[in-house]
């Protein structure tokens, strides 16, 4: 099948996947807190409501920037599974995240700004990991595209255990889970109120949410890369990783940005750097 078809399919299916994931997440979290929790489809209700609500805009550029965020996030996913060069995808991924920062920063208000700065910090923390991860996967499989990795005879996960481990660490940032949910929080009881999204309302907030669903789907697709010999196994692994994230989310407090930055860098340097070094020395 033409890889472009995969890209298109991703754009269509990822929101459903991400939304359902968020729904399951909320129920599981609620159960961990001795609560019943919302219905499974709650994230979709929320999205629907946000789209129907008035969008109060503080400036004219926030919305286009958020559309850029959403668009580039969807494009990242589509390019990823659509067969574009993996390292290039890493750069587009960062760009997509950057647009959210800019949208929040453009408001010029204290809470949005602090959220934007913190998001920039988590971006700074996580970006080296994604570049190294995708580079290492390319190195191991001698491939440059998603399909190339999947069809490679080399099994990725056994060769990149350190990176897989680090992935679960860094995914905490991308999934906006405690302890790394420092720039925004689904639980608004934090010092930055709602951080990045403080000044977004209505459909603007819906874009952020939707982009986040794409992001979750992208992470799932990335986990599959590690288990390139069996896609179902990869998805199962993602489920395990996600389950772990929910557990971690529910059993930690929010870290401070200094710790987020330091710890992520240390993990990236030790686990990922070590793994990459081993790869280069052995191969």
């Amino acid at each position: 099948m033409n890889p472009i078809v995969f890209g298109v399919l991703f754009i269509l299916i990822a929101p459903i996947f991400g939304g359902l994931l968020a729904g399951v997440d909320r129920i599981v979290s609620a159960r961990m807190q001795s609560r019943v929790g919302p219905p499974l489809l709650q994230p979709f209700y929320d999205l629907g409501k946000l789209l129907q609500k008035e969008a109060r805009q503080v400036n004219p550029i926030a919305e286009p920037l958020l559309l850029g965020h959403l668009g580039f996030m969807a494009a990242t996913g589509a390019m990823l599974v659509g067969g574009t060069d993996l390292i290039f995808v890493a750069f587009v991924f960062a760009l997509a995240a950057l647009f959210l920062v800019l949208a929040a920063g453009s408001v010029n208000s204290p809470y949005s700004f602090a959220g934007a700065e913190r998001e920039l910090i988590v971006l700074l923390a996580s970006e080296p990991f994604f570049i190294l991860m995708l580079a290492a996967i390319c190195k191991v499989t001698d491939a440059s595209s998603y399909q190339g990795v999947l069809s490679s005879a080399v099994m990725v996960a056994p060769k990149l255990p350190g990176i897989l481990l680090a992935f679960t660490f860094v995914a905490t940032i991308k999934l906006r889970k405690s302890p790394f949910d420092i720039s925004t929080s689904h639980h608004a009881h934090q010092e930055l109120v709602s951080g990045l999204t403080s000044d977004m309302s209505g459909r603007l907030l819906a874009y952020v949410e939707l982009a986040h669903w794409y992001e979750s789907a992208i992470l799932a697709a990335l986990v599959v890369l590690f288990f390139n010999w069996s896609v179902p196994l990869g998805l199962l692994a993602f489920a395990v990783v996600y389950g772990l994230e929910v557990l971690v989310d529910n059993s930690t407090s929010r870290a401070k940005w200094q710790l987020v930055l330091r710890s992520t860098w240390v993990v990236t340097l030790l686990l990922v750097g070590g793994n990459v070094l081993a790869l280069f020395l052995i191969k």
């Binding site: 920063g105 920039l120 910090i121 971006l123 970006e127 080296p128 570049i131």
Partner: peptide, 22 residues
Amino acid sequence: AFGTSLTLFYWGKLLIKVLSMR
């Protein structure tokens, strides 16, 4: 990987400043 991410940070800061409105 690290160098590139660091440039992202300072350019991002500059962008935030330039792109903000009032």
